[in-house]
Computed example of a mutant assay.
Amino acid sequence: MTVTILFLGPLRDAAGEESRAVPAPLDWTGLIGAVGTDIAQQLADDRVNIACGGRVLADKTSLQAKDGDEVALLPPVSGG
């Protein structure tokens, strides 16, 4: 029973990996503990979003990932 955390963009560089499997279920507190201090600090930024099961969460602290879910960490997108 696992949840897959997907690290996208610069968060992938910070994590040193594209994804990480962690035990299910996974909530906000568990996510913060699973990603490490550097990424946890970035997740505190309001511009970083979280998607669970393909849906972006309006309130990322409401994360409730179940077995088989993918949790994508979405850094801010810059444009020009």
Rank of each mutant, 00 (worst) to 15 (best):
D67V: 00
P75Y: 05
Q41E: 15
A65V: 07
A24I: 07
L6S: 13
E70S: 04
P76H: 01
V48F: 05
L43R: 06
D38H: 11
S78G: 12
A21W: 08
G16N: 10
R12V: 03
A40R: 03
P75W: 08
P10Y: 14
V56R: 12
V56H: 12
A40V: 07
W28H: 08
A24Y: 06
D13T: 13
I39Y: 11
R55V: 08
G79V: 04
D59N: 08
V3P: 00
T37A: 14
L43A: 11
V77P: 08
E18D: 15
G33N: 09
A21P: 00
L26G: 09
Q64D: 15
G16E: 05
I39W: 00
R12G: 09
F7W: 07
V48G: 04
G79K: 03
V48I: 12
T2Q: 09
L31N: 06
D45W: 02
G30C: 10
I5A: 04
N49F: 15
C52K: 07
R47D: 12
V22W: 06
D69F: 02
A40H: 11
A24R: 09
D69R: 02
A24D: 07
M1F: 10
T29Y: 13
G16I: 00
A40G: 14
G33P: 04
G30Y: 01
P75A: 12
T61N: 01
L11V: 02
L74V: 12
R12K: 14
A24F: 06
D46N: 13
G80T: 07
P23Y: 08
T37I: 01
V3T: 02
T37L: 13
P23F: 06
V22Q: 05
P10T: 14
G54Q: 08
